[in-house]
């Protein structure tokens, strides 16, 4: 094993939970998220020679995980009709297991963070990715630019769009 491969494998092992959570936030299913992480690990190992600078290892790995997640979603979009419900804003209430909609004002008040979380997950992929990386993985904007291959101003723009869209969704819900 080369030194880079050793570093990569230990980096992956240390951060595997992060990759799983990130994958899960896209695919929303345990087995699927495990598959995504596995594919991502293999891909990282196969392409490690392309990673010239170890400083980029972190952002590079996020990028691979996001890629695998999105590939998975594209494939399964047609297979899983329930996906559409999630996209339309239906929320699976954890406590009761019932489906509740955003337009139930009571739900918004009591479950706001979860509704917000669900709303984030139903944003278009690029906006979602920027918000997740910024607020959940606490990456800086330049780091997000490196992960997504966008330039810094595009990252900002996506964040702006995303937040605005979220605000609209939440407002509609409350009204």
């Amino acid at each position: 094993m080369t030194k880079m491969v050793e570093e990569l494998t230990s980096y992956i092992t240390q951060n595997q939970n992060r990759y799983y959570r990130l994958a899960y936030s896209y695919v929303k299913e345990e087995q699927a998220a495990l598959d995504v992480v596995q594919n991502a690990v293999v891909r990282a190992l196969e392409h490690v020679s392309e990673l010239r600078n170890r400083e980029y290892m972190g952002t590079w790995l996020y990028r691979i995980v996001i890629n695998e997640s999105i590939s998975y979603l594209r494939r399964s979009a047609r297979e899983m009709p329930c996906e559409q419900e999630i996209l339309n804003g239906a929320v699976q209430d954890r406590q009761t297991g019932q489906n509740t909609q955003f337009d139930d004002p009571q739900m918004i008040v009591t479950q706001k963070p979860e509704a917000l979380y669900t709303a984030i997950l139903s944003l278009p992929e690029t906006m979602q990715t920027v918000i997740k990386l910024y607020y959940f993985e606490e990456l800086t904007m330049p780091e997000i630019a490196a992960v997504t291959g966008m330039n810094l101003s595009t990252v900002k723009y996506r964040l702006y769009e995303g937040l605005r869209k979220l605000k609209l969704t939440m407002k509609e819900g409350v009204a």
Partner: peptide
């Protein structure tokens, strides 16, 4: 958003 991050 930080609260929502908890769910994540």
């Amino acid at each position: 958003l930080r609260e929502a991050a908890e769910f994540y």
